[in-house]
Nucleic acid binder design. Structure first.
Length: 241
DNA sequence: AATGCAGGCAACCGCCCGAAC
DNA sequence: TGTTCGGGCGGTTGCCTGCAT
């Protein structure tokens, strides 16, 4: 029993959006908000598929989109996130405010892929192309158990640690986890901290890194990218709800 | 100036998942 | 429990533009 098509394709426009269509969509969403995409085209007077409207809004018309060239910091962040998450563009986009999954995906395929290849790095495995195939250090996160186990394999060494069972990977686009301004004073956060990556090795301001670690020596605690503390995922930095 | 080619990117397609019934 | 529907995601396509010849 197949699914019915999401819209009646015979009477829908396809291809590039016109300025008038954009204006209609923007005006409708401003007036009514994002609601049922299926019924939106008819209500807005658009001869478009609901999916097409959603995509156009999310990837191009949304007012909070950044547009423009990616910064070097964003470049590096995308590479690191990709090495951890793979082609999970929506997850990666969730860590880059104002960027969409489609934009990042395109940017990866056109710019970063080539950049990594030029550096002699396999864009899929993030390892040197010349590196012989072998069992190398890898991180495996298992979500199958009630108690989440994080296994960190370092060559032949294997550590398994019980971690918090209720890892929340439900994501949404929103400002990243921020520190209370009163707690950080008037100082500004570095790029990593502004993205919610406090305690990251990439932190250059050290403001976020001093937060929440008063009982432990922050300089000796090896926080990794994405809040991997000594190889253990700090799920708070991933939580976006 | 005309043509061919490659790169960039917007948009589409098909599949998956969760909610509702 | 099975079916339908809406929304979301990743992969792919195809148009547009700029550059080289």
């Amino acid at each position: 029993m197949g699914r019915s098509p999401c819209c009646e394709k015979a009477h829908t426009n396809k291809g590039a959006w016109t300025k008038e269509e954009d204006e209609r969509l923007i005006a409708y969403i401003r007036a009514h908000g994002e609601g049922c995409w299926r019924s939106l085209p008819k209500a807005a007077g658009l001869l478009r598929c609901g999916k097409s409207c959603r995509l156009r809004w999310i990837n191009y018309l949304r007012p909070d989109l950044k547009r423009g060239n990616f910064t070097k910091d964003e470049d590096e962040l995308i590479i690191k996130l990709h090495s951890l998450l793979g082609n999970k563009w929506s997850l990666i986009a969730g860590r880059l405010p104002g960027r969409t999954d489609n934009e990042i995906k395109n940017y990866w395929n056109t710019h970063i892929r080539r950049k990594l290849l030029n550096r002699g790095i396999d864009p899929v495995t993030h390892r040197s192309i010349n590196e012989p195939a072998q069992e190398v250090a890898s991180s495996t996160i298992s979500f199958t158990d009630t108690n989440m186990k994080v296994k960190v394999e370092e060559g032949k060494d294997l550590e398994t640690e019980e971690r918090c069972p209720d890892l929340n990977l439900e994501l949404r686009i929103s400002p990243p986890y921020q520190l209370n301004p009163e707690e950080i004073g008037a100082k500004s956060l570095c790029f990593a901290c502004s993205l919610g990556l406090q305690n990251s090795k990439d932190c250059s301001c050290k403001i976020g890194c001093n937060f929440g670690t008063s009982t432990e020596n922050s300089s000796s605690v090896g926080y990794d990218f994405l809040g991997m503390k000594n190889g253990i995922l700090d799920y708070r930095s991933l939580e976006m709800k």
